[in-house]
Amino acid sequence: MARRDRGFALATILPALLVLAAIYVYPLLRTIGYSFTDYDLINRTNHFVGFANYVSLFSDPTFYTALINTLALGIAPMLGAFLLGFTEALVLNEITAGSGILRGLVLLPWVVPQVVIAFLFQFMYNPTVGVFNVILKDLGIIRTFQPWLAHPATAPAAVVLAYVWNETPFFMLMLLAGLQSIPNEIIEAAVVDGAGWWQRLWFVTLPQLRRIIAITTILTVIWNFNNFTIIWPMTEGGPANWTLTFSVWVYRQAFQDFNLGYAATIGVLWLGLLLVVTGFYLRAIGGRDEAP
């Protein structure tokens, strides 16, 4: 490219770069800067404290609780939603009559706003009038109504179920598109070679979908890591921090405790975790398809 052309190109993208810098780079740098301060709106302090927040964070038991919960609530719903979504995609791929209506119905949970999903599930889990309790008691599985969101043993699973319900249609949609893009010739060749349904699924379908599976699962994990709208209305990170994730913890520290320095430190470490996962994602979308 000629020098003049390069100058022109730079001039045309400069406004966009400046906007991006203002929106992304400045807040990021500011957050990293705050993580080295004791910025606290209640105690009215804002001094440089070096790595004190990081040292304090690594000695804070809540950090490890939040880390484990963030990983668990990032990965477990993805696994559940993937299995259900893949099953739905396989079924819908075989159905021809009424498939349009069925696909529309199956997609519904994906279009419901997450905060609505949170309140719906919270109501369904209600310990006095919730439909979960009514059904389980009628079936004889429980003797008394249970506080699903208030018990450490059940609250994380109850939250995971809400995530799964929301995310399953995404997997269904993407994997169904993937299934329909597999050339018929490959399937037919496998049939001719005497491959059964399971063998076709394992040796033909799954390898063909490998890249889609990698992208969708990693994307879902990233979304789950950042999820706030489901978990906050449902549990606020409780009971006793059993569903506390980094997103909830940062919110609490920043907007309830106004401990901005510490909140920024959590945010920076959380960003590091997300960057690792994003690295996997970039590798997945940048990878080359293997020849069938």
């Binding site: 450490p152 009971p239 006793a240 405790d257």
Partner: peptide
């Protein structure tokens, strides 16, 4: 006191742990 709200999170966590058997 001024930081009561910050502390109340920990107090509630303790109560929830205890009523759940800790």
């Amino acid at each position: 006191n001024p930081t009561w709200y910050r502390a109340s999170n920990d107090m509630v966590n303790a109560l929830q742990r205890v009523v759940n058997g800790s």
